[in-house]
Amino acid sequence: MNQLVVENVTKRYANHTALDNVSLSVPDQSIYGLLGPNGAGKTTLIRIINQIIDANEGTILVNGEKLSPHHIALIGYLPEERGLYKKLKVGEQLIYLARLRGLSKSDALVRIKHWIEKFEIKDWWDKKIEDLSKGMAQKIQFISTVLHEPKLIILDEPFSGFDPVNANLIRDEILELREKGSTIIFSTHRMETVEELCDHIALINKSKKILEGAKKEVKAKYRTNTFIVEHKGDFSLEGEHYKHISHRNLDDGYLETQIRIKSSRNANQLIQDLVGATEIHGFKEKIPSMNEIFIQLVNGGSDE
């Protein structure tokens, strides 16, 4: 079952098309990375899902239903540009934001209490946001995003502005929320986050979706049949079957060579050929990182 389905969504502005026929399927309880360079249309898509702006064409389904105002209570949204009422006290602010999301005042109070105990920030209750540090304000905003226990949580660059300790804290909370049944959409440039947390990804470039799928499958798809060999002594297998991609000296006197298989040979056959040619100390397949896939696709797209 998909928590969120985006079907053929197009959004046009006067001078440009921000989203061009984009379709996505976000599975239940997934952590879904929405990737793309700046200006690709991610924020536009997120705003459409949050009903801040309307799409020109296409439909959006939440929980299998057509997106409508009552879904606001099901969605939690942390915008990239963080912001709270500066003059409002932490407690009042959280209650207000929760009530706007459809929570009753008493429910809001109970849940806020739970969160401020969890984050050990009880004594912030009567402080104004303008008296808090940026990191502290971010924590409050994170709480306000998840306070109404949304089924679908949309986080735009969730880790920016957090120090490593708090970033870990937030990461653990995200994983816990997923365990409890929420679906999380990440919009980010930080590929290490994607590698670590996401199980599904979509890549949007120049208003179009150019890639979508489970992270594992995407990575498998972009395997280049390249292997990293650590060895002692020079050798060459260049020819009909193999191509040397790179070659470098390692610190401890070993050498590292990357070899790509050009023909239909497999890894075992490569090892057999290597055994005759050099002394092998290490052998593994080179799996492309999300970063490499991202750069390859985005740059490739710009040539067309």
Binding site: I52, I75, P79, L100, S144
Partner: peptide, 16 residues
């Protein structure tokens, strides 16, 4: 202007 410059408006208009 305050709501706009403090960016809180994006959170609010995702609720109302």
């Amino acid at each position: 202007i305050e709501e706009k410059t403090s960016k809180v408006v994006e959170v609010i208009v995702s609720s109302v």
